[in-house]
Simulated assay, not measured.
Amino acid sequence: MKTFRAPGRVNLIGDHTDYNEGFVLPLAIDLECSLRATPRADAVVRVASLDVDVDVGVEVEVAADGSSEPSEVEPAWGKYVAGVVRTLSERGRPPVGLDAVVSSTVPLGAGLSSSAALEVAVALALCDVAGLQLPMLELARACQEAELVATGVPVGIMDQLASLSGRRGHALLIDCRSFAVEPIPLPAGLTVVIVHSGVSRTLVGSAYAERRRTCELVAAQLGLRTLRDATAEQVADEPRARHVVSENARVLDAARALAAGATDQLGPLLT
């Protein structure tokens, strides 16, 4: 039996910029999804959760060839498992079965990417038992697509890429167009404290997809590929688009401030 781990993440700055091919500055946190797995002799992927109540459903079973429809899988958390099986199958993963037990210290609905951590942990295990090797970016793409087919939410790639790329003591400057990841060391003496607001948050049922459509519409009206290419003047009268342009600039300024150890410059950028 092997154990596969994937951390959650907190995004220091860079909201609604990843799906606009912009910049984000997340860091992996010390809370993680852990999955213990062994291969099966048949073509079945079975995952049991140690974290959910019996009435919610502690086990999910799907076909290892990706033929199970992720959006129809129950319990709800099993949709993510089925989504990963589907997107890895599309990338050539042999239909090798898996028995696994999953647990997570990443709180659900807290904005710390518990779903991405689950997707990454499952993907790492599925690739291992089937002998499939994928570049890190392709694995992140597979997990990103898995969330889309599981939930219908058109998420960006930040969460999955941050979980796979996390480095102790570093934030990650991610260019969501080139997918370049630059580790930015945190200055000595700087501590990142995450406080749970007590308000649960999920992308399913939120205005996330609507906001993404608005950004894409504005970019199309401007004749641009994405809002990454827009100027402040072009979006002056579009609040959501204006945020994307100014937020990209703030992300780059924050990364430079961290790299220089200029923590006094971070406050104005984050507020």
Rank of each mutant, 00 (worst) to 15 (best):
A100E: 05
A63C: 01
P107G: 14
L161Y: 02
A241L: 09
Q133K: 07
S178P: 09
V47G: 00
S71C: 11
I29E: 00
G22M: 02
V192R: 12
G111K: 10
A249T: 13
V192P: 04
L186Q: 03
V85M: 01
R228E: 06
G189L: 05
R9Y: 06
G189S: 11
E59P: 05
D15L: 04
A125I: 03
K2E: 15
V54H: 07
V122Q: 07
G109A: 07
R250N: 06
S200D: 12
L88D: 15
L139W: 06
V24W: 02
V120F: 01
A220L: 10
K2W: 15
E238D: 07
G205H: 03
T231H: 07
P154E: 04
K79W: 05
P183C: 11
I194A: 07
R46D: 04
L134M: 01
S197M: 12
V192A: 11
V106A: 08
H170Y: 08
V58N: 04
G156Q: 06
L203S: 13
A117Y: 01
S103K: 12
I29Q: 03
Q265G: 04
G261M: 06
V149E: 08
D65K: 02
G22P: 06
F23G: 01
V106I: 01
A262L: 03
A110T: 13
G57L: 02
E182P: 03
V195D: 15
P26T: 00
V47D: 00
P39W: 11
S49E: 08
T38R: 15
L161D: 05
R242G: 05
A6N: 08
L269T: 09
R213Y: 05
T38N: 14
P75I: 12
R5C: 10
G78H: 07
V56L: 13
L164P: 13
A130N: 09
T263G: 08
S71K: 14
R225D: 09
S67I: 08
L108W: 10
R201C: 10
G205I: 11
S165R: 14
T87H: 05
R93M: 10
S200I: 13
L266N: 11
T87G: 11
V85P: 02
Y80T: 14
I194P: 08
V149T: 11
R167P: 06
T3C: 09
D253S: 14
S200Y: 14
V122H: 06
V96L: 07
G205P: 11
T271R: 15
E32P: 02
L161R: 04
L161T: 06
G198A: 09
R46Q: 13
A241P: 13
T202L: 13
R86V: 12
G267Q: 10
A41P: 02
W77E: 15
M136S: 12
D53W: 02
L217R: 15
S163C: 08
D53R: 15
T271C: 13
M158K: 06
P7I: 14
E145I: 07
A230T: 11
P268E: 00
L112E: 07
S104W: 04
E216M: 02
V56G: 02
G109D: 13
V73P: 04
L270W: 05
H16F: 11
S49T: 08
V181C: 11
R228H: 02
L222T: 11
R242Y: 03
V244D: 01
I13K: 03
A219G: 09
T105G: 07
V84D: 06
V129W: 03
